[in-house]
Amino acid sequence: MLNNDHIDTLIAREIEGEITTAERAQLEDWLQQDVANRQYYEALKDTWGLAAEAYKTVPEPDVEANWQRFTRSTLDAPAPLRVVSRRNTWWRLSAAAVVVVAAAGLAFALLKGQGTTTLAAGTDKKEVVLPDGSKVFLNRHSQLSYNKDFATSSRQVTLEGEAFFEVAADAGRPFTVKAGASQTRVLGTSFVIKAYEHKTVQLNVVTGKVAFSGKDEQGALVLTAGHTAILRSNKAPQQVQNTDPNFMAWKENRLAFHKVPLYKAFTAMEDYFNVRIVVTDSSLLNIDFNGTFENPGLHELLEVISKAVDVKVTEEEEGVYRISR
């Protein structure tokens, strides 16, 4: 007497087409024994046939759009890195164009001690290459540190301030960035983290994919290219709309304003040039402003604005500019 499990196995093999002649004979015998056996067998075969109908209407992906995305993320990125911008000009500090770098002083410091390496950008932005080949672009007044066991089993760095990461692919050694209360586990990628003291930590994923979480990795948010998330202290990470088109301005040396109210343009400029812009007449704040500036200079840009919206710009003291009618 054949048990049911064995019969099921025979039917499974018959469906796959891998049944042997001897097994087929056994199955035939069993089918002849009872009409109920035959019904059971037919029903399963019919189910198999019917299941072919599923997934016949799988949505068609937009191949052209996906090809464009692939081109941008992979083909047009300088190998082997995946970067957004093809221009790698951010560190080329054209003296005429970039006002802010004029500030003297120790621009960059490498501190070693207690087995910890600290890479710090002073008043200047910096590009550093980590022992594993990953590249980090540090914004001004930002610093990155890692222990001497970095890259032996895992790759862990701590960030204060703001940085753009191009992480070297290495699935065996996960790359984690601790910044403020956040942890970003990298799944092969480039992204920007902004983690200034006492401020919300913000993450922008430029290419690839990362897992973003608080100190406790539970509840990590997986983010892919083009997405942004924030972490407020003692809260769960939260995905948000990135409303700042200039989030990479400091790295790309480019400010872009498309019909933005002046107050937003001024905020971006304050960040970018490390200055303060004071506006006394609040009616000025909502005037729309347009323009894209490569390697912008502060004075040049202020002059463009003063002509475009007919305002007066005066330098009140070093690094403080007043805008008035």
Binding site: T9, A12, I15, A43, T47, W48
Partner: peptide
């Protein structure tokens, strides 16, 4: 695999 296939078919049935 064979067992799971049969489980699937029986459930679908």
């Amino acid at each position: 695999v064979e067992n799971q296939m049969m489980t699937a078919l029986k459930k679908l049935r």
